[in-house]
C-alpha cells in the first residue's frame, strides 16, 4: 500500500528546480505531485511520479542525489473538515508524522494526502482499521489517468 517517493537534493538558487523536472518530462514520465521544502541554502524536492524507478535512474545519471522513501497516500473528501478527520485518527493513535503534503483531484472532488510516517506499516494498519481510504500506487495512477 506504500508509495515510492523520490527526494532530490537541490541547491537553493534560481533555475535549480526546473532542471530535474525537465529531465523527467523529457523522458515522458508523468509527475503526479511534488512538494518542495527549502532553507535559505538548499532544498529537498519530493516527487511522486508514475515510473519512479525509471525517473530515479534518469536523475541519478544526470548527477542528482535521489532518495527513495515510502510514503502513504490517503484519500479524503475535498471539503472542509476532510483533513481534520484524518488527523484526528492519526493523533488518536499517536502516530508520528515526519511531514505531509496534499493535492486535489479535479475529477472526483477528492483530495489526496501524502504522509511520511515514522512507522508507515503501523500507520497503514491504523488508517485502514479506522475505515480510511489508503490508496496504493496503481490506484493513484488510475485517478490521474
Amino acid at each position: 500500500m506504500k508509495l515510492q517517493q523520490l527526494s532530490v537534493f537541490l541547491e537553493n538558487r534560481p533555475g535549480r528546480l526546473g532542471a530535474p523536472l525537465e529531465a523527467i518530462a523529457a523522458a515522458g514520465i508523468n509527475i503526479l505531485t511534488l512538494s518542495l521544502a527549502d532553507t535559505a541554502q538548499f532544498g529537498i524536492l519530493r516527487l511522486i511520479v508514475r515510473e519512479w524507478d525509471k525517473a530515479k535512474a534518469i536523475l541519478e545519471q544526470a548527477g542528482w542525489i535521489v532518495n527513495l522513501t515510502e510514503v502513504v497516500a490517503v484519500e479524503v473528501p475535498d471539503r472542509p473538515g476532510g483533513l481534520a478527520g484524518v488527523l484526528d485518527v492519526i493523533e488518536g493513535a499517536e502516530l508520528n508524522i515526519e511531514y505531509v503534503y496534499a493535492f486535489s483531484l479535479r475529477r472526483d472532488d477528492k483530495a489526496v494526502l501524502i504522509f511520511r510516517f515514522e512507522h508507515p506499516d503501523q500507520a497503514i494498519q491504523v488508517l485502514l482499521g479506522q475505515g480510511l481510504h489508503v490508496i496504493d500506487g496503481d490506484e493513484l495512477m488510475g485517478y490521474v489517468g
Partner: peptide
Amino acid sequence: EIRPELFSDRMDRMQALC
C-alpha cells in the same frame, strides 16, 4: 558536496547534518 549516504528526505535531518 552532498553524498547519497548523507541525503535524507527529511529537512530536520539535513539541518542536523549541517
